[in-house]
């Protein structure tokens, strides 16, 4: 992914004029050579895909073998609601057709398969991997595979529930440049894996840690323990979730008030996505991926949280000391 090489074409310069003015021609060239994989076509991911296709990445590969249902339309503008169009097609296929149309200069394609089954060779084709709608263990497995490869792959996990969203970022050993006044400074960040980040004891985390971090872990654990797929919770599960929260807080020596019941209630009551939050999270994620491809600007390390209730979009650094 080096930024040198051929110049942008006149067509690219005309189309990308306004954004080249933001991140420069060099970053635009790097973008056009980057290959991105996304797994799980929910509304937030649809927003993200739109953003990076518009930005002009080299290629985008979509994986989601689920067959389209009415529920999938809820926050996903890439799926036409016409049964004649969607019947029999997978979510990835439907989204692919819409995305191709957004920018003819980006190759958008579909792969079939399960995230846990893809091998190292498969992952090695990509520079960026974004996963959603899957279990915690599948996320960890994919993250580990990305880390095993000699080339550096930027890994992101994203999840939205009700009016809340979370992004996890693993850029491994990441070098980038940023400008300060007239100087360009080289920076170096070391990211923990998802496994390592999540194993940081709660008691070691700063007092002001986002409540959403804990709440998402409780729900994640609940789904894992009950053998549910991601997002498969309802208000009927509230008592079970609250019980688990108590246990986790006790085990981790965390004051229970740091994981408000009301927040957990919101998260289980409405597991479907809220479109404005998809737009916010998909926008921030798009921005982060563009930053990491172009190696320009401070990236998020290593969690981002947004809750429409308080309107704050917060970065948390969760790594062992």
């Amino acid at each position: 992914m080096d930024g040198d090489g051929e110049e942008l074409t006149a067509q690219e310069t005309a189309l990308y004029d306004r954004q080249i003015r933001v991140w420069g021609a060099d970053a635009q060239r790097r973008l056009s050579k980057a290959h991105v994989l996304v797994y799980g076509m929910k509304g937030t991911v649809a927003e993200f895909c739109k953003n990076i296709v518009l930005a002009g990445v080299g290629s985008l590969t979509l994986v989601d073998d689920r067959v389209a249902t009415e529920e999938a339309f809820a926050a996903n503008f890439l799926i036409p609601p016409d049964e004649n169009v969607y019947s029999g097609k997978t979510l990835a296929e439907l989204c692919c057709n819409s995305l191709k149309d957004f920018n003819p200069m980006v190759r958008v394609s579909v792969e079939r398969g399960d995230l846990s089954i893809f091998d190292l060779e498969f992952f090695s084709k990509f520079d960026v991997v974004v996963v959603s709608c899957c279990s915690l263990s599948a996320k960890k497995l994919a993250n580990d595979k990305c880390r095993k490869l000699s080339k550096r792959i930027a890994f992101y996990a994203v999840d939205c529930r009700d009016s809340c969203g979370e992004i996890f970022v693993d850029l491994q050993d990441y070098k980038y440049s940023k400008k300060k006044r007239d100087e360009t400074i080289e920076c170096d960040l070391k990211y923990p894996s998802l496994e390592d980040a999540l194993s940081v004891p709660w008691s070691e985390l700063p007092r002001r840690m986002s409540k959403l971090y804990f709440a998402m872990r409780v729900i994640e654990k609940f789904e894992e323990a009950e053998g549910r797929s991601a997002g498969e919770v309802s208000i009927a599960d509230l008592s079970g979730v609250l019980k688990l929260k108590k246990e986790l807080c006790t085990a981790q020596a965390l004051n229970e008030s740091r994981v408000p019941d009301a927040l957990l209630e919101r998260l289980v009551t409405n597991a479907t996505e809220f479109p404005p939050v998809c737009a916010v999270i998909g926008g921030i994620l798009g921005q982060e991926v563009i930053k990491s491809i172009s190696a320009k600007g401070d990236p998020v390390k290593n969690f981002f949280f947004f809750d429409a209730f308080d309107g704050k979009g917060i970065i948390e650094d969760i790594s062992s000391k």
Partner: peptide
């Protein structure tokens, strides 16, 4: 007087407007 513009910021702002 061209103002720099990218899709991601506009998407985030639109989400916040609806909220």
């Amino acid at each position: 007087n061209i103002v720099h513009a990218v899709a991601t910021t506009n998407a985030v702002i639109a989400g916040l407007i609806v909220i």
